[in-house]
Amino acid sequence: MRLRDFIIRRILLAIPVVFGVLTITWFLSHMVGDPVVMYINTNTPASAIPGIIRSHGLDQPPHIQYFIYLNNLFHGDWGESTSMSFRPVTEVIAQRFPATIELALVAMVFAVLLGIPLGIISATRKDQMIDHFTRIFSLAGVSMPIFWFAIMLKYVLYYQLAIMGLPHLPGGYRYDSNRFYWFQYTTGFILIDSLVYAHSIPLFVDALTHLVMPGFCLGYLTMAIITRMMRSSMLEVLREDYITLARAKGLSEKVVIYRHALRNALIPTVTVIGLAFGGLMTGAVLTETIFQWHGLGQWAVSAILSADLAAINGFTLLVALIFVTANLIVDLVYGTLDPRIRFG
């Protein structure tokens, strides 16, 4: 009924945004930059270039080029990644997508599980020692250059421990390929593949230990954002009249906070979780290289270093689409959490 209308309206609103995103990537690749770069590399003979220009419609007027671009995108032709020996961008994405999403989801789970309780504690003990500590901890997360954090973590938890001969966390890659040389990806999500297809608990455990450091690193920023939002919305909610009413009913402080305040304070926090997904994608670009994590972020960085325009274009587009989708999902969750929106 009205919830359905809300969903439909929200999806319709996302369509122009998606078109805007396509337009911007087109503008950047075709108007600001030189699109020919997408189809050549240093070995391409100069004589071949006019042919390439013609065959990709780059000599057409801009609006025609725009339609060619859209048409190609919709038909799955996102160009070729020169840095990946000219494999189609869509293929590279399909291959690397699971690695990044798996990492991002682990980071997200970690961030939510830690961020929400911390935010609540900080808000309910406002201006006490633990609140100051939590605030600095979460502000540090927002201010942390994540690539530096990753390097430092790796230095201490992997390198130093290994030198001292202590048990240490793995310093990179998704699993130990010497030990599990026989392993082949099926879905690309190693936590699923190890259990469902390879039936190997040791592999699963190994994959988990490989996820700990990059997951924590990536999740810290998100956790910090969630903690901050949770704290401030909790503080706001605790000042609301209905909290006074809940207390006047004789409810204990615990019930007041976890039943009456939490539900209301979660509403704005959920929105932030959607936005934090953008942070995770950004973080993936900065951390995956450091942990040799063969995901989209690592691909993007190597593409940057070898001036692989098609890859960057495809990556940007993909991230924007993921971001828009994540926010859409969050909005829908929002609708079910807040009855005022659902029926509004």
Binding site: E240, D241, Y242, T244, L245, A246, R247, A248, K249, G250, L251, S252, H260, R263, N264, I267, L337, D338, P339, R340
Partner: peptide, 27 residues
């Protein structure tokens, strides 16, 4: 404070001024 919880709502109840802001919007 614990005994007070048995007083509030059971022995002494209060109705506040503004009906717009006092009920919890999500229940």
């Amino acid at each position: 404070e614990e005994d007070m919880l048995h007083v509030r709502g059971r022995l002494v109840s209060i109705v506040f001024q503004d009906p717009a802001t006092f009920p919890n919007p999500v229940f």
